[in-house]
């Protein structure tokens, strides 16, 4: 899958789900892209680097979300 297409698909799907939740497991993203996790990882890493996605962690588990979204984003970004 081309990077731009993947990015758009992630962006659209996550935006649609914003109302109910803002954080997603890696496997949710891989499912949205409909490709193997190992291949999805490269694309998703790139989305973090270009600022589309950001990480969230409970310390033991990691999740992904669109940058700056989520109900705790305000306090976590300390702005």
């Amino acid at each position: 899958m081309e990077y731009e297409e993947a990015r758009q698909r992630i962006f659209d799907t996550l935006t649609k789900k914003q109302k109910s939740k803002s954080k997603f497991y890696f496997s949710d993203l891989a499912k949205i892209l409909e490709i193997k996790p190992r291949d999805a990882k490269k694309l998703i890493n790139k989305m973090v680097e270009d600022g589309t996605l950001e990480y969230w962690s409970s310390g033991s588990t990691s999740m992904y979300g669109l940058k700056g979204t989520g109900k705790q984003a305000h306090t976590e970004h300390e702005d």
Binding site: V48, W56, S57, Q72, E76
Partner: peptide
């Protein structure tokens, strides 16, 4: 309290 900050830029841990 827990916070979700996970790392420096580009790192998820």
């Amino acid at each position: 309290k827990h916070g979700g900050i996970v790392g420096v830029f580009g790192y998820g841990g």
